[in-house]
Write a protein that binds this DNA or RNA. Sequence first.
DNA 1: ATCTTTTATGCAATTAAGTTGCAAATATAT
DNA 2: ATATATTTGCAACTTAATTGCATAAAAGAT
Lengths: 143, 143
Amino acid sequence: MKIDPTNILKEHSLKHTKQRVRVLEEIALDTVAISQPELEKKLGKEIDRVTLYRILNIYEDKGILHRIMDMNGTANYAICSSACSEDHHHDEHIHFNCTSCHKIYCLDVAVPHSTMPKGFTAKTVNTTAYGICDKCNQMIKKD
Amino acid sequence: MKIDPTNILKEHSLKHTKQRVRVLEEIALDTVAISQPELEKKLGKEIDRVTLYRILNIYEDKGILHRIMDMNGTANYAICSSACSEDHHHDEHIHFNCTSCHKIYCLDVAVPHSTMPKGFTAKTVNTTAYGICDKCNQMIKKD
DNA sequence: ATCTTTTATGCAATTAAGTTGCAAATATAT
DNA sequence: ATATATTTGCAACTTAATTGCATAAAAGAT
């Protein structure tokens, strides 16, 4: 994925700081989502913990990143592929959480529509599949 | 939902303790899932925090409860409706997380099947819809 | 019922995620 | 270059969750 941090910041009228650029760069390195602890480990020497939290929150609010919770309740972040707006994240694709390597993939599979019971109005639907990813399945074959 | 804690414990060859019975009773009180912090608040005087964590983990492992993570990464627990086994939770129904009252409902709506990309093998699929629940929608109308 | 063994509980201490308030540093518009 | 608004870093705090260990309580045998 090719991203232009400076442009993204401008598009969302966010001030251009080196910390904000670094966070975007780091997350864009991989197509799989990256967890908050991993980000902190990678950027901890350059960026303060609190600042990182604040940047991630702003990016999520603005629809630049979307946040996926894994089974342990850890926040994982990935760049929103489709244009998400401030009030609506339509990252309506399936996430795949590998139970072996713990990576979270944003699959190019749409979330199937489900009809809600009477009285329930759904705004966003989040689907996460748990299992073994492509890479880990290949590793298993080799053994 | 009518549950028999003593029987549930026996079925899963778990020792019968008053703490384990209390946890099951408390969770069975409501059809909506209850969060760990809520449980702790309710049972904190009777049961030690650590014991509560351990009981919840055992129940999840045994397939007695299933755990639903909300947007804040807080664990929520509900009694498994269908018989879940030790190695496979098939709580393949949609969860509805109300963004107003924060309750998590286990909806009687099956998770639609999605085909995974080549190489990805899914074991469990988890779907959570976020929006406004029945009760909260009625409250809004009244205002 | 009592003893014995196994398992569960409670307590203290620790790790780690996330938040808040505030002073200093930095971005941007003039 | 300067002023103003915003962001950052730091310290301190809150809360979720885990670990080790001594004590307490189950469940089966006697």
